[in-house]
C-alpha cells in the first residue's frame, strides 16, 4: 500500500487492483461508522481511495488498519436491473467481441457486476466484472444526448446514465429504474460496493 498526500487534509490510498479498492472502501466506511475515522469524504476510484477532510495523524492510523484481502467483501444483496437490450450500439459491441448479438446479451446478463466507484454525474456508477479482453473503446464522437436509463459500455466498464446527458459510451440497452433521486434516503440506487446483475426484460 502507498499513501499519497493530497493538499493539507487529503490522503490517497493506492491499491494494486480493484478488489483492494473495495477492501479499503469497506474498511474505511466501517471505521467511520464506529467513529474511529473522522473524514468528510471517502471517494473510491478505479485503483485508489481518496480521503478528504481528515484530521492530522490519520495517515498513521491507515497503516494499522490495512484490511485483509476480501475480509469485508461480504457480498450483500444483488440489485437487479431490468434491461431491454435495444441499444443502438449493441451490434457494434457484438462485432468488437466477435460474437452474435444474442451471445452479447447472454454475456451482459450473466456477468456478476460490482459498483467500483461513482463519478461523471450524480448516481453514475462504474460497474466492473467483465474480463479485460471485453473492453470496448468509446465512440469516436460522443452523442450530444444519451437518453436517461441507457445501459452502456466503455473501456472495461458498464454504466447506466442517471439523467440524459452527452456521452461517448456504447449503448447496449435501456432500463426504467431510477438511478438517482434526491428525495430517497439513499439517493443513489448503485453505491460503491453494490453487486449488480443486468436482467433481460
Amino acid at each position: 500500500m502507498k499513501i499519497r498526500r493530497v493538499g493539507a487534509s487529503g490522503l490517497l490510498i493506492e491499491c494494486p487492483d480493484a478488489d483492494r479498492v473495495e477492501d479499503w472502501r469497506a474498511e474505511l466506511w466501517r471505521r467511520r461508522e464506529t467513529g474511529e475515522l473522522r473524514v468528510t469524504e471517502i471517494v473510491p476510484g478505479a485503483l485508489t481511495v481518496l480521503l478528504d477532510g481528515v484530521a492530522p495523524g490519520t495517515e498513521a492510523l491507515l497503516t494499522a488498519w490495512e484490511p485483509a484481502p476480501g475480509e469485508r467483501r461480504t457480498g450483500g444483496p444483488v440489485v437487479k436491473i431490468p434491461t431491454v437490450f435495444d441499444g443502438a450500439d449493441l451490434d457494434s459491441v457484438a462485432a468488437l467481441w466477435r460474437v452474435t448479438p444474442d451471445e452479447t446479451v447472454r454475456r451482459l446478463t450473466e456477468t456478476r457486476l460490482t459498483v467500483a466507484f461513482s463519478g461523471f454525474a450524480p448516481g453514475f456508477a462504474y460497474l466492473r466484472g467483465f474480463p479485460d479482453d471485453w473492453a470496448v473503446p468509446r465512440l469516436d464522437a460522443p452523442r450530444p444526448r444519451v437518453p436517461v436509463g441507457s445501459v452502456a459500455l466503455a473501456g472495461g466498464w458498464a454504466g447506466i446514465y442517471p439523467t440524459a446527458s452527452p456521452g461517448g459510451w456504447r449503448l447496449v440497452g435501456t432500463t426504467d429504474q431510477t438511478l438517482f433521486d434526491v428525495r430517497r434516503e439513499q439517493p443513489a440506487l448503485l453505491t460503491p460496493g453494490t453487486r449488480v446483475r443486468l436482467v433481460a426484460k
Binding site: 469524504e41 471517494v43 477532510g53 450524480p122 453514475f124 438517482f180 439517493p187 453505491t191
Partner: peptide, 9 residues
C-alpha cells in the same frame, strides 16, 4: 453539499 462525493455529487 460535501459528503456525497462517493455518489458523484
Amino acid at each position: 453539499r460535501p459528503g456525497w462525493a462517493h455518489l458523484g455529487v
